[in-house]
Amino acid sequence: MTDFDPERFAVIADIHSNSDALEAVLGDIADQGIDSIVNLGDHLSGPMAARETAEVLMASGMRCIRGNHDRWLLEQAPEDMGSIDRVAFDQLEQRHLDWLRSLPPTMQLTDDIFACHGTPTSDTTYWMEAVSPKGDVLPRPRAEVAAEATGIKGSLLLCGHTHLPRRMDLPDGRVVLNPGSVGCPAYFDDTPVYHLVQTGTGAACYAVVQKGRHGWATAFRHVPYDPRRMIEMAKSADHPHWEPRLTSGWVD
């Protein structure tokens, strides 16, 4: 594992086996002169290039935690997995699964920086969003977001899971940051009710974080890349509906 620079670093999340989007983001991070990366999970589940993605991540030395789909790849029998988890599982060797198993669900990177996938206590809960009974994805009230941070040490709290790039400043001055999704800019879910999460762009997304005199400066970067190979892999895995997601960030 490489040294971590807590003053300036990149945050990525939710690759979902999109290795071409990952390579584009890693190239952009290098172009920014950034050496340190925090990866917030959901690495390999997706109907694309799970093995390729695993190989890149395992060789990278970046700080990684485990997401809910990573956990399901380890906990569920193959026949019980969701379809995108099963596509990924069938590509992976035991050493890839062992790497996933070695990852913690959360990480205290420094006294000032905490990382989780969903919330500090759940990898399946949205931290900064709430789903209405009608399926609308709305900003979660700030008091509820702050309540999830009770007892967590750090002024910068990192999360992923919703694939939506967002920053929220809490009443006590702490920052909650979601870097968006590297490899899956739109999806649907049926928990707690059916809803769509759509970013409206096919670009691979991540965040750059820098500690300044007055607090945390954060910036989202949307990186264009060619998704055609990933789309063909998804189609070959019987997931043609991923094409509009990868090209436009909308669920068709």
Rank of each mutant, 00 (worst) to 15 (best):
D3I: 08
D3T: 11
E7F: 11
E7V: 12
R8W: 08
R8F: 11
F9E: 06
F9A: 06
A10H: 14
S19N: 10
S19G: 07
S19P: 06
A21I: 09
A21E: 04
V25Y: 02
L26W: 14
L26Y: 14
I29D: 14
D31F: 11
D31W: 12
D31K: 13
Q32S: 13
I34T: 15
I34R: 14
S36Q: 02
I37Y: 00
V38D: 02
D42G: 01
H43D: 10
P47E: 07
A50D: 01
T53Y: 03
E55A: 01
S60D: 01
S60P: 00
M62V: 06
M62H: 07
R63S: 03
R63C: 02
R63A: 02
C64D: 00
C64K: 02
G67L: 05
N68F: 05
W72Y: 07
L74M: 04
P78V: 03
S83N: 11
R86P: 10
V87Q: 08
F89W: 12
Q91W: 15
R95A: 07
H96T: 14
W99N: 01
R101N: 09
P104R: 03
P105G: 01
L109Y: 07
T110P: 01
I113E: 00
T119S: 04
P120G: 03
D123Y: 00
D123F: 00
T125D: 14
W127C: 00
M128N: 04
A130W: 04
K134D: 15
K134P: 10
G135Q: 06
P141I: 10
R142F: 09
R142Y: 05
A143D: 07
V145W: 10
A146H: 06
A149M: 11
T150M: 02
K153S: 02
L156W: 03
T162D: 06
T162G: 08
H163Q: 03
R166A: 11
R167T: 15
D169I: 15
L170V: 15
L170I: 15
P171N: 10
R174W: 11
S181M: 06
C184S: 04
P185A: 04
P185L: 05
T191H: 09
T191P: 07
P192T: 05
H195I: 05
L196F: 10
T199W: 05
G200D: 03
A203S: 07
A203T: 08
Y206R: 10
V208W: 08
A219K: 14
H222M: 12
V223H: 02
D226F: 01
D226V: 04
P227N: 00
I231C: 06
I231R: 07
A234Y: 12
D238Y: 15
D238A: 15
D238W: 15
D238V: 13
E243K: 03
E243M: 06
P244W: 04
P244Y: 03
S248Q: 08
